[in-house]
Amino acid sequence: MPHFIRGRGKMLAIATLVVLLSIVPLLGNNYYTSVLLIIGIHAIVTVGLCLLMGYTGQVSLGHAAFYGIGAYIAAILSKTYHVDPWLAMVVAIIATAAFAFAIGFPVFRLRGNYLAMATLGLGIIIWILFRELDWITGGQSGFLDIPTLSIGGFAFDSDFRFYYLVWGFCLAVMFISQNIVGSRMGRAMRAIRDSESASQSLGINATLVKVKILALSAAYAALAGSLYAYYVGFIDPPPFGFLFSIRLVVMAVVGGLASIWGAIFGAASVRLLTEFLHPFGDIDVVLFGLIIVVVMILSPQGVIRGLGDLWRRISRRLTPS
């Protein structure tokens, strides 16, 4: 049996998730559908970040840049150059992955805090480019009237339809990632995280593995970015800035850095919290900082794992020994 559905509990949880997800839009409330849709998009990016940070141990504080590059390439190709949106999406994914692959080699000469600073700087540079290259990107006034995806005559032009598209992609990304984590590549990733020099003296090309995972996570981000552009139909620089990079890290941490399925939980918690805190402006960033600190102290493996441990402890106490 493939390892990603080993364990009945996990299988049950995933089945429940799939059923729940498919029911929601049938309830007919557009607001929840759109919130859950955005959660799906963010979960795709978060999974990539989990592969990079949680499994391979490499920090990225600039992942919003890849998300943005994907969105802008898809938007510009499909609108300005009238490329088919699906093709534009594929090009966006490949181009973003190639870009990440190329910058990966110099960037991964750095480690730890320096790596964090470099990715942070990279994210800011890309964001400034979105803002300043206004003859291509529309600058601060944004990029309007992006066409949407369609198959034959069937257009994904409602929240209801787009919802299934996004979660279809999201689940596919989850399964691919879970498979990678359990493979030889996944073992190499964890080896690099635990001890890079030891991994090298066993024949693992640590730099290449890190660069490949960066490229893969950039590809996920670009997929999510182009879905976002097609869904909203309008993009401008703010959603692709530094704050979103931080938010992505929060999603990954809350869901559990080394947990693929936790990414959905992380993306959902952060998104819902943002919705609730909307009236208070940017104060959510402060709260997110606090959340990271609390999660890292109380349950460094993520909230889900933490709740699971808590449950086990309580049930052990309740059963008479």
């Binding site: 493979s183 030889r184 964890r190 080896a191 635990d194 020099s197 030891a198 991994s199 024949g203």
Partner: peptide, 29 residues
């Protein structure tokens, strides 16, 4: 240089990493 979060068996399997480095190894399980 332990891979501390991994099992003893996984540590040993990683020892054989270099012996199976062909393109087929990318296919995973």
């Amino acid at each position: 240089g332990m891979f501390g979060s991994m099992s003893v068996l996984d540590n040993l399997i990683l020892g054989a990493y270099a012996q199976h480095g062909g393109w087929t190894s990318q296919l995973g399980d």
